[in-house]
């Protein structure tokens, strides 16, 4: 007689899959732009296909060196950076970086785009979207929140009308999902998120870094050559969580939560606050295996808290 095995439903592997703007991710873990380069540096360390996806280094129309150094200052439970969008420019990204990435990453990637005018954002998206590597791109993440550049970046993310103008310009250029990366350096982030939603954004991601500053007591000068920079790391996690919670209640489009996420527990907390997926930033810089470890730890953390699946958790957050 065949043995009948009783399957305990509670022992089943938790389902880590989530849907992000129509694309299914194996898990919600996404290394954030600016902390993961174009992926291949990390691919030397582990198989980056274990990730949900990742957001590549913020790309502008022209190559940029960024700000003077020092660009990094340590803080309690975090760090300031004032890199200032160093990148090789969109043409080199298309010609060199993405073909290199294609060797090691076989999932749709998130293309992070930055600019100094609505037209520049649109032009960068247009070139990527019409390039030979456009099939690699799953989503565009439009960074209207870089605090380290003048005359662009964050100035678009702190005014709902300017944010709307960028979304409008970019929306024409692609049918792929547009995710707008928002700044926390505002009075009411939900206003900006709603303006983006109205103009046809498919999602928002938040938070970019919080503006901060450090002074070196020995030199009596700011640590950063740029004087101010953006704070990231565990220090910002509660602020990010609060803003994700507020934004998820205010808009119908998916919200990607980020800001100080450094463990599987943090991922679950972000998702309970309303995030559809979660980006991991500064943690990648202190531990190159951080994102891989979060992916690995996620099923056990879900079991620990009695969570069977992650999809739909954003809807439940609205009842908090």
């Amino acid at each position: 007689m065949a043995e009948v095995r009783r399957v305990d439903i509670n022992d089943a592997m938790p389902d880590t899959r989530v849907n992000l703007c129509g694309i299914t991710l194996d898990n919600p873990v996404i290394p954030a732009s600016g902390t993961f380069g174009f992926g291949y540096e990390f691919a030397e360390l582990y198989d980056i296909n274990c990730l949900g996806t990742f957001s590549f280094k913020g790309t502008t129309l022209d190559p940029r060196f960024g700000n003077d150094t020092p660009r990094i200052a340590e803080c309690p439970a975090g760090m300031l950076n004032s890199v200032g969008l160093q990148n090789p420019g969109v043409n080199d990204v298309i010609r060199e970086e993405l073909p290199k990435l294609a060797q090691v990453f076989h999932k749709p990637v998130m293309a992070n785009v930055s600019g100094f005018s609505a037209d520049e954002y649109a032009e960068v998206v247009k070139r990527l979207d019409r390039s030979s590597v456009s099939d690699m791109i799953g989503w565009y993440e439009i960074n209207i929140s870089c605090p380290n550049v003048h005359g662009g970046g964050m100035s678009f993310g702190t005014d709902p009308h300017m944010a709307a103008s960028v979304v409008k310009a970019v929306r024409w250029m692609t049918d792929k999902p547009l995710i707008i990366k928002l700044s926390p350096n505002v009075t009411d982030i939900t206003e900006i998120a709603k303006a983006c939603e109205t103009e046809g954004a498919d999602g928002v991601s938040l938070i970019n870094t919080l503006m901060g500053m450090r002074i070196d007591l020995r030199t009596k000068r700011p640590v950063l050559a740029n004087v101010t920079g953006g704070l990231s790391g565990p220090a910002v996690f509660p602020v990010a969580l609060r803003m994700v919670y507020q934004t998820a209640k205010a808009v119908k489009i998916p919200v990607i939560g980020m800001g100080g996420v450094s463990s599987a527990d943090d991922v679950l907390e972000m998702m309970m606050a309303g995030a559809a997926a979660v980006e991991v930033g500064a943690a990648n810089l202190t531990d190159p295996y951080a994102s891989r470890d979060i992916v690995r730890d996620l099923p056990a953390a879900m079991k620990k808290y009695g969570i069977k699946r992650l999809s739909g958790s954003a809807d439940q957050a609205k009842n908090l």
């Binding site: 600016g34 993961f36 960024g66 660009r71 990094i72 950076n81 890199v83 190159p288």
Partner: peptide, 10 residues
């Protein structure tokens, strides 16, 4: 980071 990811020390 010290390993080429963050562009902090360019």
């Amino acid at each position: 980071c010290g390993f080429g990811a963050c562009m902090g020390c360019s």
